[in-house]
């Protein structure tokens, strides 16, 4: 029983992290493509492009934190 619930906790943590990573990836894909396009036109936009591209990174961080908290439940 204990092993089973630990397994479920692990699955939960994995989902929390994995799904948020997928979400961030989808968001960054589009922003990144647009940023590269803008940079091709105007190279000085590198800084702004970089910032816009990494904005969704936060989602992954939240996912990771939630995953760590979920693992904490198993203890």
């Amino acid at each position: 029983m204990a092993a089973e619930s630990a397994g479920l906790v692990a699955i939960g943590a994995g989902l929390a992290f994995g799904l948020s990573a997928i979400a961030a990836a989808i968001a960054e894909k589009q922003i990144g493509a647009a940023a590269v396009g803008a940079m091709a036109e105007k190279e000085e936009l590198f800084g702004k492009g970089l910032i816009l591209t990494v904005i969704p990174e936060t989602i992954v961080i939240f996912g990771l934190v939630v995953a760590i908290l979920i693992i904490g439940l198993a203890k």
């Binding site: 990174e57 936060t58 961080i61 939240f62 990771l64 934190v65 760590i68």
Partner: peptide, 16 residues
Amino acid sequence: FSTILSYLRLGAVGLA
């Protein structure tokens, strides 16, 4: 809140 929580990455990236 989201700004403050965003700084969680300081720990999280390191943990990874």
